[in-house]
Simulated assay, not measured.
Amino acid sequence: MTLIQKIALGYFVVLMGAASLNYIPGLTDDEGLAFGIFALDIFDDALHVASALWALAAALTSPRASKIFLVIFGTLYLGDGVIGIFTGYGYLDLGIFTNGSDGFSFSLFRVLANLPHIALGGVALGAGLKLGRGL
């Protein structure tokens, strides 16, 4: 298994972990916020599981499939996090379409709520572009 495939496999593990956050006692507060920062619903869980299965399939298929996963996933998740900073809602869970915009905010809460998608997306996109050259 190549490095790029191992990275895609790592995304499978991380995304399955994200999908399980609501179901691990003690990780959500009384308001249903994971780590007291963001709420995850069934649509978020489904998105994370679908993304995880895509990552697993890519990792087990080939380095090229892993590159494609990392670049597309990275672009989508990074964009979702950036849009979340600007509007308060992302587009991957359709939140921006069902809630409108809360306007731009660079508050600590807004940054922390969107940081997982920005970090996961940025690392995936960078790895896919850098390690995927020539694939």
Rank of each mutant, 00 (worst) to 15 (best):
L115G: 12
Y23G: 00
F35I: 04
N99L: 01
S107C: 03
G95W: 12
G74Q: 10
L33T: 02
F97A: 00
Y77S: 13
A39T: 00
S107T: 09
V82H: 00
F104N: 03
A65P: 04
G26A: 06
Y11M: 13
A18D: 11
D29N: 12
T28I: 14
I42E: 14
L94H: 08
G100V: 02
K6I: 15
L112V: 11
S107R: 05
G95L: 11
D44P: 04
L60H: 01
P63G: 13
S51Y: 05
G79K: 00
A119T: 02
L125K: 02
I72E: 14
T75N: 06
G84A: 01
V49I: 06
G32Y: 07
D30G: 07
G121V: 05
G126K: 12
N22G: 03
V111W: 05
Y77P: 05
D102W: 04
G26S: 04
V82Y: 03
I72H: 10
F12Y: 15
W54S: 11
L33C: 10
F73Q: 03
G122A: 06
S51N: 07
A59T: 08
A119I: 03
R110F: 06
L78D: 08
V14L: 15
G26N: 05
A18C: 11
L125F: 02
G122W: 04
I118K: 07
K6H: 15
F43D: 15
K130N: 13
F109K: 15
G100Y: 02
V13Q: 03
L15V: 08
G32S: 07
F38M: 11
D102N: 14
I85W: 04
G79C: 05
L9K: 08
A57F: 14
V82S: 00
L129E: 14
K6R: 15
G10Y: 10
G126F: 14
V123F: 14
T98S: 12
G74A: 08
L15M: 15
Y91P: 07
A18F: 13
T75P: 05
